[in-house]
Simulated scan of single mutants.
Amino acid sequence: MRDACIKMLSEIYTCDIIDANGAFEALLRWSLAYSRSKAVLKLTTANETGFSMEHRSNVTVADLKNTCAKYRHSAAKVIRLQSLSSLQPLVSDLDIDLKVMFLVRDPRALLVSLYGWVRNLTAVNKALERHSGDRSPAENSDYDIPMLNADFVKQYCDWMTLNFEQISNPADWLRGRVKILRHEDISFDPRAKAEEVYDFLKIGIHSDVTQWIQENTNAPLKARYGVMETRRNSKAMVYTWRYRTLFSEVEDVQRICSDAMAVFGYRKLDSLAELRNLSVPTIL
């Protein structure tokens, strides 16, 4: 998995695209890429028809490489990379001017989304069991939600501390290449954090970016937002987990993630009253 991830990143950053069909198939799995990407829309315009798999025979590898090469910067969101050290070949072997935004979130806030995912999956599996009268091992409806929470949170916090150590004591190749971002800081002041990121990258921030931030992080408040919804009230979303989590669960996370919370500046809560009182900060 790690080698495949690094190979994919190297192809993105060097525009070393070798399979046009594969590139198009990947884009079609991500609707935002082909509906909003200026690079993709330019290829679509060249074909004078809508963007679909029918065009894969019309667009060559050379077309994709040339389009990619026109852009000075390339970015990728990576969510399954265990260690920053895995990125070393991109710098040492390919001489890529790599910069990393290392994004973390309060592990206590992850509980709500994890509960929702597991409960939905459990409900589906139980429905399948009732319908078919049988189930495969992969359709196990007897999930132990608290145990899954503990395992998931421990893995996440171990990942946080592992990479914090690499950032705090960086190898020569990593020095000056990583900026830590906390989800909560971005939510409280997305404009300021965006400016920090662009400054770190030594890129001027475009007015389209600041306009998008203004329009999409100050949405009217509502009871619930969709999982993939892009327009939200970012400030209001920061502490919603504090109303949806049991204090006993918070205590468990604080015990499991004590080290991670300390190094990333997350304050522990000592009672149910503190959990529900939003004037009590959770960020140091």
Results as ranks from 00 to 15, higher is better:
Ile203Trp: 07
Pro190Gly: 08
Ser207Tyr: 06
Asp185Cys: 02
Ile205Tyr: 04
His206Ser: 15
Gln211Lys: 15
Pro170Ile: 00
Gly176Asp: 06
Pro190Gln: 05
Ser187Asn: 08
Tyr198Val: 01
Glu196Gly: 13
Val209Asp: 06
Lys179Leu: 10
Trp212Met: 11
Pro170Gln: 00
Arg182Phe: 07
Glu184Asp: 05
Trp173Lys: 03
Asn216Asp: 00
Ala192Asp: 08
Arg191Gln: 13
Ile203Glu: 07
Ile205Val: 15
Glu184Val: 01
Phe188Thr: 05
Arg182Val: 05
Ser207Arg: 14
Trp212Asp: 14
Ser187Gln: 10
Asn216Lys: 05
Gly204Ser: 15
Lys179Pro: 04
Ser207Thr: 10
Asp172Ala: 12
Val209Thr: 13
Ala194Asn: 07
Ser207Ala: 14
Val178His: 05
Arg175Cys: 06
Ile186Asp: 04
His183Trp: 09
Ile205His: 09
His183Phe: 15
Asn169Ser: 12
Glu195Thr: 12
Asp185Thr: 07
Asp208Tyr: 14
Glu196Cys: 11
Trp173Phe: 02
Ala171Ser: 10
Asp189Gln: 08
Pro190Leu: 07
Trp173Val: 01
Ile186Phe: 12
Val178Ser: 04
Ala171Phe: 00
Ala192Ile: 02
Ile203Ala: 08
Trp212Ile: 02
Val209Ser: 05
Gly204Pro: 14
Gln214Leu: 08
Asp189Thr: 08
Arg182Gln: 10
Leu181Phe: 09
Glu215Lys: 05
Trp212Cys: 10
Thr210Ile: 02
Pro170Met: 01
Ser207Asn: 12
Thr210Lys: 09
Asp199Gly: 14
Asp185Ile: 01
Asn216Tyr: 02
Val197Phe: 12
His183Cys: 14
Ile203Lys: 12
Ser187Met: 09
Ala194Pro: 11
Gln214Lys: 13
Thr210Gly: 10
Tyr198Ile: 01
Ile203Leu: 15
Leu201Gly: 11
Leu201Glu: 04
Phe200Leu: 10
Ile203Arg: 13
Ile213Glu: 01
Ile180Asn: 09
Lys179Tyr: 05
Leu201Gln: 10
Val178Phe: 04
Asp189Pro: 12
Trp212Thr: 11
Asp172Gln: 11
Glu184Gly: 04
Thr210His: 04
Gly176Ser: 06
Glu215Tyr: 00
Val178Arg: 04
Ile180His: 05
Pro170Phe: 00
Pro170Trp: 00
Leu174Asp: 07
Ala194Gly: 10
Lys202Tyr: 07
Gln211Gly: 07
Lys193Trp: 06
Glu215Cys: 00
His206Thr: 14
Gln214Asn: 09
Gly204Ala: 15
Arg175Val: 04
Ile186Glu: 02
Arg175Ser: 11
Ala192Pro: 11
Trp212Arg: 12
Ile186Trp: 08
